[in-house]
Amino acid sequence: MAEKILVTGGAGYIGSHCVLELVEAGYIPVVIDNFHNAIRGGDALPESLQRVQEIVGKKILFQELDILDEAALQELFQKHHFSAVMHFAGLKAVGESVQKPLEYYKVNLTGTIRLLETMKAHGVRDIVFSSSATVYGDPAYLPLDENHPVGGCTNPYGKSKYFIEEMIRDLCKAEKDWNAILLRYFNPIGAHESGRIGEDPQGIPNNLMPYVAQVAVGRREYLSVFGDDYKTADGTGVRDYIHVVDLAKGHIAALKKLKENCGCKIYNLGTGCGYSVLQMIKAMEKASGREVRVLTQATPHTPEGPWCRRDRRGKD
């Protein structure tokens, strides 16, 4: 019998791609989302999951639910027998986290605590957590590996990921029947080969490639690139980008690792290869056949996106 996997925040960019890969791998994903970052579609489904259904030809189980709602979580776990949880739910904009730190700590930390407590109450002890390479802070050496010190985060978003990692690590130490995989992402980009799901954020994009795409299709006039004096081939910042489908397949591998009663394991998800901002822009121009207008400016004091930060770390 196919295993049921709870996917929190599964209507988002990364979550929806993981839902698709779960179905393809023979699992039954049960998705919860509160529509904070998702667009509503028909049939009471987020649009992203409606498209996943069309791609896989199977119904996706979905419930609108906020992980801060303890009673709703309890009811969900009573209704389904989950073998594991993939945890994506949370607030994720770096700049916004600086402006609203308490909201980020409340949603990301308190929501995770309630999820873990509900899992414990219902005998579910396996979790894959969507973390971030921001937990490393400023690098002491490159390339970054899993042995690099953590905790030097520069914003509340990154700190919330670090604190959640610490909570899960402590839980696994205290209760040996827990198994957790902490996946530290670098910079996810791209879309499923069908072109039906991908990254299309509401409002001003927080990440480089959706902004580039919006300029390419004429939704935005130009892309501001801040800083042209990095010690790189073209003077713009270099980052490690990983295709979102490869990232999703990494989550399937993590689920299989949990079956080994692995305790708490940590893995970076990246490629180890860096590409500059201008290289990414040129790649989009080549793929789309559209010109992407670029405006190079001095580094601002309040950057609006990851392509603006004077950041040589190469991570999200």
Rank of each mutant, 00 (worst) to 15 (best):
Q50K: 13
K59N: 11
N34W: 01
E70N: 02
G95P: 08
H87L: 12
E54H: 09
M86G: 04
N37E: 07
D43W: 06
S83C: 13
A38P: 05
H80V: 01
H80T: 09
D69E: 08
K79Y: 03
V31Y: 03
I60Q: 10
I39Y: 14
M86I: 15
Q74N: 11
L65E: 06
L91R: 14
R51W: 05
E75D: 13
F82K: 10
F77S: 05
K79G: 03
S83Y: 11
S83W: 10
A38Y: 12
I60H: 00
E64I: 10
F35D: 08
N34E: 07
G90H: 09
I39V: 14
Q50I: 02
Q50G: 15
V94F: 06
R51P: 01
H87W: 11
A72N: 07
F77K: 05
I39G: 03
N34T: 12
L76N: 05
V85P: 12
I67C: 02
A84M: 07
K59Q: 15
F88W: 13
H87C: 10
A71M: 10
R51D: 03
E47N: 07
I60P: 00
I60K: 04
P46C: 07
L45C: 04
H80W: 11
S83I: 06
E75S: 14
F88A: 09
E47L: 11
Q74L: 08
K59A: 13
S48V: 04
A71Y: 06
A72T: 13
L68G: 04
A93M: 12
I55G: 01
V30Q: 03
L65H: 14
F82D: 07
L68F: 02
G41Q: 00
Q53Y: 00
R51T: 04
K92M: 11
G95C: 06
D66F: 02
Q63G: 03
V85A: 06
L65P: 12
I39H: 13
I39E: 15
F62P: 04
G57F: 03
F77V: 01
L73W: 02
H80R: 06
H87F: 10
V56Y: 05
F82C: 07
K58C: 07
V85M: 07
Q74A: 05
P46T: 11
I60G: 00
L49G: 04
K92N: 12
A38V: 09
I55Q: 00
G57W: 02
L65V: 15
G90R: 02
H80I: 05
K79M: 11
Q50M: 06
V30I: 13
E54V: 09
V85R: 11
E47W: 08
L49Q: 01
L65Q: 12
S83G: 13
